[in-house]
Nucleic acid binder design. Structure first.
Lengths: 355, 355
DNA sequence: CTATTTTACTGTAACGATACAGGAACCCGA
DNA sequence: TCGGGTTCCTGTATCGTTACAGTAAAATAG
């Protein structure tokens, strides 16, 4: 006894319990369809044989639903966990999905042997999260013919999108700084193709939106410095901005706008290191309103875009699409949150004191 | 044309291209098995018909592998994203898995209609992450008869585990404080059943390990205060400890050990708010060595347990088990990282010199 | 020009489950 | 005793794919 045990399946159990395969299936999935006595007998047989329960892969094939939603993230999936903004979106997604009894599949947009992994995942719907429009995973996702929702980017026709108008939001930051009287400014952005957050075109939109607003306000181009950071980390930002901060007060920008809060926090670090008071000598505005930004020193003025809610909303839209209900892209709005990292410039215009 | 389009499957495409179903399958999965001409013809037909590609659920059923690894997290999955330690473990897992071309499925341990979701997920292996031994998801996972790896808890016989010896590690913290001369101490821990991090018994082990070390060193019980925090957040910890910190210097503990860094950071916050200098008036030791701890003011002395590596390792073990290779639980060690939040007590016990 | 290998494709039989349409037994009231 | 309704269970037909064995034709060898 106990030679070549094949895998235990419904049939095995059915035979052992002396019932049909369907009855075993019902014992697991529709207890009301059989008598308690039979059910006990079946489950007892299953336990005795070591039956692992109905195979989810087979159930999925037959039923046509899987109970999981896929989230496609940047090429290097792991990067997502180092970005507080993305983690917040995931948090929102996870909150909503787990409440609905769904599991959350994290899919790297990367290839596996040339084929994007997104082709192979077993899910009911896909959420594309901050992907560049030309990422191969995007077309692969579309080809799957599953319900899709995007967060931020890409924008696909006929596909609901959750996200703000980045250009407009960045203009808010510019207007705030202009209102305060700043005329010599710095834009700190991410260089394209760092493999991380900057790959998504939302970042670029923020930069161009900011610059466009300055141009519209007739700030001369020579008064605007743009710096690109190669890596989306606090320390990289700190490093990148420090040279600029060490300039004499007359030539140093009086305000810095960064395309993400992570970068802004790096700027605060650099300012502290250089002994330059914020906001007295330099104002800083970030973007995203991540948790750390409210607790930084000084607390950061930033563009708030409620990433948690965006995650929740994306999940809800995906679930609705799975249920076959029609959905439309909701209108999200970003707003300026004024905290303590911005103020009027110390000595505007010319006679810029001597510091 | 275009009446009741049934779903397009391999058969549909095969018929349209005038080949057998197998040839279509091969066109996708084994290009070397057919001529380039036929392959093009097949793919062209597929494109024309809008074929979404081989159905992953059906592939999984047939092939017996899915290309995804499930990670089972605390009951409230979303909680995981608020815990820097767990996020770091996930980061490690994701790094390793995505490099191997695997997707990562986050599974809430919660029930859906009574059945743990873990019963229904389509994965090649499961990683159980900091679950209480009696979580229903644990037995459900075992019942699945899939390869399993655990991180931290539970401990299951015959199942490889990645994790440190929490009692021993907490004793390290105790010894450090004792060596410095502290004799009036506080243990800040999590109350069981907050639904979050404390549910896992690792937390309790840290507490008991710390207390046991104090007892072994003959610190009288009345000199040790234990405080339980109901929620695993910085602010909850800060709130919980502040009363104690406001005691007069003679009755206030000179050192606090917290079972996680998050709590320790909360203690630093409270100390700052109360105007009590760290480490001059009170020493603080945390546990986990999360990223924030190196950058706090003052930088935190803590027990380092390389959570990122634990995540990576767990992923590697899981993949090896999927490949059928035997694996054994690796030996992980925690170590004390001495930074600036601990020092000798200012006015020790009796008139024993002045520091 | 036959013997042997290679190439290119086809047919059948699963993979493990569930939907659906019965059907046998039983219970009731008339 | 007989319709009409429950209750409980079974058989058959898929779900969409791939493994495997097999075959006809083409290429290579001897």
């Amino acid at each position: 006894m106990s030679a070549g045990d094949d895998r235990v399946t419904l049939d095995t159990v059915a035979a052992a319990a002396g019932v049909s395969r369907m009855t075993v299936s019902n014992a697991y999935n529709r207890p009301d369809q059989l008598s308690a006595a039979t059910r006990d007998r079946v489950l007892e047989a299953a336990a005795r044989l070591g039956y692992a329960g109905p195979d989810p892969a087979a159930q999925s094939l037959r039923r046509g639903r899987t109970g999981t939603i896929g989230v496609v993230l940047t090429e290097r999936l792991p990067y997502a966990f180092t970005d507080p903004g993305l983690v917040t979106i995931l948090h929102g997604l996870a909150t909503e999905l787990s409440a609905a009894g769904y599991a959350l599949l994290l899919v790297p947009s990367s290839a596996r042997g040339g084929e994007p992994l997104v082709r192979q995942v077993i899910v009911d719907a896909l959420v594309l999260c901050s992907l560049p429009e030309d990422d191969p995973a995007v077309s692969a996702a579309v080809a799957r013919q599953l319900p899709i929702v995007t967060v931020g980017h890409p924008r696909l026709t006929g596909v609901p999108r959750v996200g703000i108008d980045n250009r407009r939001a960045a203009a808010l930051a510019a207007e705030h700084l202009l209102d305060l009287g700043h005329r010599r400014l710095c834009l700190l952005t991410l260089s394209p193709g760092d493999g991380g957050g900057s790959a998504n075109s939302g970042i670029r939109e923020r930069g161009t939106g900011f610059l466009a607003a300055l141009t519209a306000a007739q700030v001369p181009a020579r008064n605007v410095t743009t710096i690109e950071v190669g890596e989306h980390t606090r320390s990289a930002a700190s490093h990148a901005i420090s040279e600029l901060l060490r300039l004499p007060a007359g030539r140093r920008p009086t305000a810095v706008f960064t395309v993400t809060d992570v970068l802004a926090l790096g700027v605060l670090d650099a300012a502290r290191d250089c002994g330059i008071p914020v906001p007295a000598a330099v104002s800083v505005v970030g973007f995203d309103d991540i948790a750390e930004s409210a607790a930084s020193v000084p607390p950061l003025t930033t563009i708030s875009q409620s990433l948690f809610e965006q995650g929740q909303l994306a999940a809800r839209l995906a679930l609705r699409r799975v249920a076959g209900e029609p959905v439309r892209s909701p209108r999200m709005h970003a707003e300026l949150v004024t905290r303590a990292s911005t103020a009027r410039p110390a000595a505007p215009g010319r006679p810029s004191a001597r510091s």
